[in-house]
């Protein structure tokens, strides 16, 4: 009905957050929060870059789900845009779906992103350790 609105709302928040963090990373002299904290020597993806992965998944997913909702006649190009918002009974069902499926979508995408960040951080740390060991040897 309108479940895609929940990840879309999260996408707005994460996009703003990514912009703010990116500005801080550039202005603060520390190009990378992770690097500054760990004293890393190897090139790492800054946190704003990692947050952009989440933005892409949320915006992309929401846009493609929007097409599905238009396809099924649940979203229309005229006010109130959501056909379920036309009467109270359908609106209640729509809100229930947003609270269950919509929140579920946002949570699953965020969890997968958190997993991607954890794996990439582990790979970066391993590369950092290897470089430090190679520097000690030489």
């Amino acid at each position: 009905m309108a479940c895609f609105l929940v990840p879309a709302a999260e996408a707005i928040v994460t996009t703003v957050a990514a912009k703010v963090i990116e500005r801080k990373e550039k202005n603060g002299g520390s190009v990378n929060i992770d690097n500054a904290a760990s004293g890393s020597k190897t090139a790492k993806t800054p946190f704003s870059g990692k947050l952009r992965w989440l933005n892409t998944m949320l915006w992309g997913g929401s846009a493609l789900l929007l097409l599905e909702h238009v396809w099924h006649g649940e979203v229309v190009p005229w006010f109130p845009f959501l056909t379920a918002a036309a009467n109270a009974e359908d609106a209640a069902a729509m809100l229930r779906e947003m609270a269950t499926a919509g929140v579920g979508m946002a949570v699953l995408v965020t969890l997968v992103w958190a997993g991607m960040v954890a794996v990439s951080s582990a790979i970066e740390k391993r590369a950092d350790k290897k470089q430090t060991a190679a520097e000690r040897e030489s």
Partner: peptide, 20 residues
Amino acid sequence: GTLGLMFWGASLMWLVDAIF
């Protein structure tokens, strides 16, 4: 990578829909 992430995002969302 951007294209892949877009499709993965949609896939995860439809997966939740499918589970429900």
